[in-house]
Amino acid sequence: MSTPQPLAHAPQFDDPTQQRTAAVLGMWAFLVTEVLFFGVLFAGYAVCRWRFPDAFAAGSRHTDLPMGAIETGVLLASSCAAALALRDVQLGGRRAATRLLVLTAALGATFLVMHGFEYTDEYREGLVPGLRYTQDGPLAGKMEFFFYLYFAITGLHSVHVLVGVVLMLVMALRNARGRFRATYFTPVELAALYWHLVDIVWIFVFPLVYLVGRAG
């Protein structure tokens, strides 16, 4: 298993093309299940926001918009890096690809650290349902739903980012060792697909959590 055999294929397949097709289709299928997984939380968000629009607007104003905006930028940049890394692998640019994969992971880690700061602030302000929720006022009770969903959605998303960071580092390592080349790049492609999903989920989270209700 230690020597790379890029054009070999698993015994159940007839040829590398069939293996690649199966792997990519499997990844897309997995991404569909992820969409449904997050979908429950977004549906819960939709129902609660529809029932308590004022409390959700108030909750939204407690979030850190500049921080959220920078995080969005960081994640978008990391997705771009992942896409470029895949392209470099396909074109045979191994060193550039390794650097881009490490950059992707680093940007992902930056995102996690920034979100960690946000969580710390929210804990200090007493905005964490179940652990430390010290808000009062007429909207405080319903606002708890907002923060419950906020932590559920962003927490689950952060777990996905963490998995992605590890995945990208593994890909970088394997690429540096010469496991991938212009004719064999499926794992990098799959990791990049996963990373884009993580990014897209955030593209929905950002407006729902940070932007909606601020204008009101």
Partner: peptide
């Protein structure tokens, strides 16, 4: 996946003592 997330929410709600299904707080 929908069932998985729903069960996760049940566990979370039991652990946190608060959640969107809790009618005492106005949940559904």
């Amino acid at each position: 996946p929908v069932l998985a997330m729903t069960l996760l929410l049940i566990a979370l709600e039991r652990l946190a003592g608060v959640g969107i299904f809790d009618p005492a707080l106005g949940g559904d």
